[in-house]
Amino acid sequence: MKIISDTGRYLLLMWLVLRKPDKKNIYKNQVILEIDHLGVDSLGIVTIISVFIGAVITIQTAFNIDSPIVPLYTIGFATRQSVILEFSPTIVSLILAGKVGSRIASEIGTMRVTEQIDALEIMGINSASFLILPKIAASMIINPILVVISMFLGVFGGWLSGVLTGVVSSNELIYGFQYEFHPYDVFYALIKTVVFAFLIASISGFHGYNTQGGALEVGQASTRAVVHSSIAIIIFNLILTQLLLI
C-alpha cells in the first residue's frame, strides 16, 4: 500500500513541479547554477571511474578470449559496446544517483526542516517548482554530456590498458573500437541517460521535499533517495532496453 501511496504523492508533486514557472529568468539562472553544482562537480568521479572501468573491461575481455578463432580486435569491439550500451549510461547514472541524489535530497530536506520551504510558500512561491524543476532540467542537460565524456574516457581507458599491458596491439584495439559502429547505440544510450537524469533528480527531490523532523530524518531521506533512484534506474533500464533495442 505504501508504494501506491508514495507513487501517488510523487505524481502529485511532479504536477506541481512542472507548472509554469513564476519568473523564467530566475529559473534560467538556477538551472545554470545547478548544472555547475550537480554536473561539473561530478566530472572528477566520472573521469576516474570511466577510465578505470574501460581499462578493466579490456583486460577481462582479453583474459577470457583464449580461442585462436576469435580475432583480437573483438576486445576493442566488446569494450566499446560495453561502455556505450551499458557502462556509461547505466553505471554512471547509478553513481550519479548516489552523488547527486543524496545531495539533492539532503539540500531540500534541510530546507524543509529549517522552514525555508515554508518561507517560500508564505511568499507565494511555488516551492516545489522553484526548488526541484531547475535540478531536473540541469540534470537532463548535463548528464548526457557527462555520459558522452564517460564513453570517450572508457574507450580511452580500454586502449591505454590494452597497450600498456600488451594484451592486444593498439591497431587491433582501434580497429575493434571502429568495427560495426552504429550511431543508434549512442542515441539509445543518451535516451536512457535523459530518462535516468529525470528519475534521479525528481525522486531525490520528492524525498527531500517530504522530509519531516530533523537532522536524522534528512539523513534517512537522503538514503531513501539514493536507494529508490537506483531501483528506478534498474527497472527503467530494462524497460527502455526492451523498447529501444529489441
Partner: peptide, 17 residues
C-alpha cells in the same frame, strides 16, 4: 496574491543558506 501581502518571521529565521 494574498501571500505577497504576508510577511512571516519563523522560529529559526528560515533565511536561505
Amino acid at each position: 496574491m494574498i501571500r505577497q501581502e504576508i510577511g512571516m518571521l519563523f522560529q529559526g529565521g528560515a533565511l536561505f543558506d
